[in-house]
Design a protein around this nucleic acid. Structure first.
Lengths: 243, 243
DNA sequence: CAGTGGTCTAGACCACTTA
DNA sequence: AAGTGGTCTAGACCACTGA
């Protein structure tokens, strides 16, 4: 493999991985689609199968692709079971994974304020979508969210306001807008419920809530969502597993 | 490699890994010590170097060993820089990693109560150590902890009560008692400060605090510590990175 | 059955460390 | 210079999948 124009001392497999990710970012294969086989990729890159394998194994470890013996290597999809809980860490007391439903309260377009431009690395006064929703677990409102999206990435966004539906926004982002959330950084704090929180979650004003401040990044590292969640942790908790 | 006594269809490298971990658990190599080279291990197990490599690579990914080119493969140590923040996720607003100091308030032996036997999977009325301490960041008390340890694993534990020192208990567990914490599960909730919390952390009673309920497990999966922390998140947060 | 990823081997060369 | 882990290759065989 020759990248003649610049001396490049990174390992071959790392270069292969980078090229494959660049092709993913470009949307060359859609989520759920199968990639070419290891041998075929090895041939096109002019490296051995083992080198391609190492690149793909690392991508599988980062949840960018899913490998299935006998079938092939597929572009990861947020609708896949293992992906569904990857970005959702709220569990009930037994640790059971329950899928929340969502209720959108409000969705409107606006100019970004300072906090929003900072978190999403947008130019001043960029257009954003601002959404508020409640997430419901076992029939009770547990999480109140305020979600900010760069309008440039989500042109023509609409959502069924006021109706409850099994939600996973990241599936929507991926399927309708071609935006794949690859990783996220969450900052957790304890805060007191303000009167809006209290009303939406059915708790007293001042009740301690778990605040989750999340910025989600796409495959190429662009911030694509800023989400501020407030969770009633009376009957639920946030699960963090440290390996 | 023949494990003649029982049909074993697991991959060779997985068996090698299991054998190596068993030897770590048995304390065959102490933390910080160097393991035999890949070639030497391959010879003793009767497999190829590549197979040993795959086992060691997985162990390195789990932070059980540290590999250093040109030097060798070493048993992971809690005192190593990358390990120091692996189990400590509290950051200040800038995201800076500051090392806390610790102030032990109390240390006493007792019989385990129901909560303690449940969390640590101990028999009823087993002996435990119960410790309370405050952790200090930038000169301010930020975290109040109540730590329970099985006395059986920590015979003769003593700690400098009332004096502040750069703390990392996991280094102590490893060096003085041969107990290596390999992973942990944390449940996070928002709670209101009780009067003890308030006094220790210098906040008003009722202030929202981040509660971290952690059970730490050793290499072989035995629960070795139950830690209930309450953090003042006014100037700090808990960082969770989702890959 | 052919094609896929998963495992295992053997050998070559490289980069880094220590003596 | 010798020894270590890191990369890369080529080829063999296996287990699983779907036509």
């Amino acid at each position: 493999m020759s990248t003649a124009e610049s001396p490049d001392f990174r390992p071959l497999y790392a270069q292969v991985k980078e090229l494959l990710i660049a092709r993913l970012v470009r949307g060359e294969w859609r989520p759920g689609e199968v990639l070419p086989s290891e041998f075929s990729l090895a041939a096109t890159f002019g490296v051995s199968q083992g080198t391609v394998r190492k690149a793909l194994d690392e991508m599988a470890a980062q949840n960018l692709v899913v490998r299935r013996q006998g079938r092939g290597t597929f572009v990861a999809q947020h609708s896949q079971p293992q992906a569904l809980f990857h970005f959702f860490h709220i569990r009930d007391e037994g640790g059971t994974k329950e899928l929340p439903t969502g209720l959108v309260l409000e969705l409107r377009g606006d100019r970004a304020d300072r906090a929003q431009t900072t978190c999403l690395k947008l130019p001043a006064r960029a257009r954003v979508w601002e959404m508020r929703r409640v997430r419901v677990l076992r029939g009770k409102p547990v999480i109140l969210e305020r979600i900010t999206l760069p309008a440039a990435l989500f042109a023509g966004l609409t959502l069924p306001i006021g109706s409850e539906f099994p939600d996973e926004l990241y599936i929507l982002y991926q399927e309708k807008f071609g935006v794949t959330v690859a990783r996220a950084e969450e900052k957790l704090r304890a805060v007191a419920a303000d009167s809006l929180d209290a009303k939406a979650l059915g708790v007293a004003k001042g009740t301690p809530l778990l605040e989750i401040d999340r910025v989600a990044l796409s495959l190429d590292g662009t911030p694509v969502e800023w989400r501020l969640s407030r969770c009633n942790t009376a009957r639920h908790h946030y699960l963090s597993e440290i390996e």
